[in-house]
Design a protein around this nucleic acid. Structure first.
Lengths: 388, 388
DNA sequence: CGCGGGAGTTAAAGCGGTTTAAACGCAACA
DNA sequence: TGTTGCGTTTAAACCGCTTTAACTCCCGCG
């Protein structure tokens, strides 16, 4: 019997089955040209020894690492709040795992990002990478191309720079939220935006703006919330200090800043949704349990991860893959959205009496209203933020 | 010049530098016996070609994968809320990254857990694994041992079964919170626990119980919160429906359930902390921004990850490493903790007038009080939950 | 002048697989 | 009986690196 402590190799299996190592390899990989019973004998021997091929050895000989890479670029303090990644990663795993492939994760500071990708490419530890959190003028598509590192963009095609993009539209959630708020009588709908460097932050802002315009209103103040609780709280404080110009509804770029906004409203003695309506995005586990429950939108991060992994598969195999568009995030209009407060709401818009969509609503004369009045928001032109 | 599309190998570098491949290897690995200028020439050639050794090839030849594995076992729906892992992973990375090593992440369902570790071991894709979320009677220490897969336990030594444990004590946070609540006049302090399968859930519960006993009180009701918002809300609803026996303070096993509890209290018209004090654990980014801000405790997950990675290093290298004990989580007593409501609070414990620790507080006669009265909680015996 | 010895360098043998091309056995065919 | 051809199996090269042992100089010494 072979040495007890050494893990079995293909040679051990071959010996036990009474064949050559090549035969074992053929059996393992389902190559044709092996007699049925030989193959069975080999697989039995492999099972008996608990043998599985060494991935490094396989990687070396056929040049595939059997792993995808994911680089998370974060400031140290911004780590920990994002419900997107765990689910996304689980989705990626759902594709990788059945094949025995792995996900290699790297967390880097902003300065080390390029180096992380270069290393991933040079090390040959992964077959391709998933690019998330696309930024304006993101250097990564060009970088991965120059490294000839297969890559897929997790985000809209506009910023893919020729790479395959796997996207999930968050715009309907924002335009829908604004449309619903308008329906509820709101006229001053502010936005607390995410970091401007991110494509999706800008897209969310553009969606909000388009929907507000489509309702014939002037887009209200936009303040940066940075996707953080601190930022969301600060922005909310500022918005609520605007006196008469104070918004009656705030659309936040994510749940974290929205939840912080809720707390600030309470702190200032404002009722939600009585005095202020609030909408977030992400549908954090907590969203249904804030006080009041936070209206938000659910993006299916699990499916997104799976779709991204499948697309990267294709790119790795064939060099190209078609863009994928997933089902858009759907708005969950929870109790934090309500009728606009009486002082601004028209008489007919009391709680419970929803004016049907399309019914003419009193619209305050607003300077700079350049949108066709009455155009239903949902049917408006697609929002295009500037190309990245 | 070599083929343009092929990545450079050690042979290309050797040719360019006019030496043999072995010399390049020696230069790369800082082996002695190479003339200084030869080494410099080789490194220059490597830099010029942008060559970095192939990790699979290295792994194959010296038998080290240059990667650690982390398996996250989660039900699909429990994914996404935990602020611990992103920070923990970043900590692990801080050790791995400078060396060019990687983290291989696997997310599995509960049923596939053992298979995931077996694969990680058989694949030889990692040099060792980090075991987190230790459970009662956790099979993984035995499993990794039988697979001769180096492992480190991220959790207290009691459940390490002989493996190296890297722990961060969460008990002082719980005993401290209870002591503070007692000081504030609370006499009925309930606990909303985490899933009983987890060691740390039980330990937190035991800490709460010990502290309550140490204060001469009878441990109040314990309800399962499952670490989730749903569970926390349900448990809170049940606790607050107890009528006269209703607790005046609830210590939750984590922030997620605590935050949901806050919402339930509001919903029932109870003021926090006026009618009910609430404490969580984790110091979620949101904790400082709930309404009112949630008292919680911060565990330094980043350092924890780094320490765990360093310990695993030692285990991989030498087979053994000393247990590591990190600085305990520290309680952040935010506004959700306040004086007990008047109907139960003694006269002297009005808001703002804190009775100094150690001052005799009126203590209700409670049956089953088996602890020495007056023993300061912090100095009490170490809580030991049953061995796992 | 030959030889021992140290410094510098390299040839060659792995590591554990995959893969190509050749060898093998055997039946059918000429 | 000697080919031919097919189905099955294997030897050997290779993937890119590490490492041991050997090899080559060159110097100093006897």
């Amino acid at each position: 019997m072979a040495a007890r402590d050494r893990r079995p190799t293909i040679a051990d299996v071959a010996k036990l089955a009474g064949v050559s190592p090549s035969a074992v390899s053929f059996a393992l990989n389902g190559r044709p040209g092996l007699a049925k019973d030989t193959k069975a004998r080999i697989l039995a021997a492999a099972a008996e020894l608990g043998w599985r091929p060494s991935r490094p050895a396989q990687a070396l000989s056929h040049g595939k690492a059997g792993a995808f890479g994911l680089v998370l670029t974060r400031e140290t303090d911004a780590i920990g709040a994002d419900p997107f990644f765990p689910a996304f990663i689980a989705g990626v795993e759902s594709v990788l795992s059945p094949r025995g492939d792995s996900l290699v994760l790297h967390v880097t500071g902003p300065g080390d990002e390029a180096a992380a990708y270069e290393r991933l490419a040079a090390d040959r530890r992964v077959d391709g990478v998933l690019l998330t959190d696309m930024r304006v003028d993101d250097p990564r598509p060009a970088l991965t191309r120059s490294l000839s590192l297969p890559a897929v963009v997790v985000g809209d095609p506009d910023c893919a720079q020729g790479l395959c993009a796997v996207s999930l539209d968050d715009r309907p959630a924002f335009t829908g939220a604004v449309a619903r708020l308008v329906e509820l009588g709101h006229r001053r709908i502010a936005h607390v935006a995410g970091p401007q460097e991110f494509r999706h932050s800008r897209r969310r802002q553009a969606s909000w703006e388009e929907a507000v315009r489509a309702a014939g209103l002037t887009p209200g103040p936009v303040l940066p919330g940075g996707f953080t609780a601190d930022g969301g709280a600060a922005a909310t404080r500022e918005l609520l200090a605007l006196g008469d110009a104070r918004p009656t509804a705030i659309v936040y770029a994510n749940d974290l800043s929205a939840t912080a906004g809720l707390a600030v409203a309470h702190e200032l003695g404002l009722a939600v949704p009585g005095d202020l309506s609030v909408v977030g995005y992400d549908d954090t586990p907590l969203a249904a349990y804030t006080h009041p429950p936070l209206a938000s939108a659910r993006a299916d991060a699990l499916s997104w991860g799976a779709a991204a992994a499948r697309a990267l598969d294709e790119v790795v195999a064939g060099g190209r893959a078609d863009d994928v568009e997933l089902a858009p995030a759907e708005l969950l209009p929870r109790a934090s959205m309500g009728p606009a407060p009486a002082r601004t709401a028209p008489a007919g818009t009391a709680p419970g009496s929803r004016s049907p969509a399309g019914a003419p609503l009193p619209r305050p004369a607003s300077a700079g209203d350049r949108t066709t009045p009455g155009a239903p928001p949902a049917a408006g032109p697609t929002v295009r933020s500037e190309p990245c």
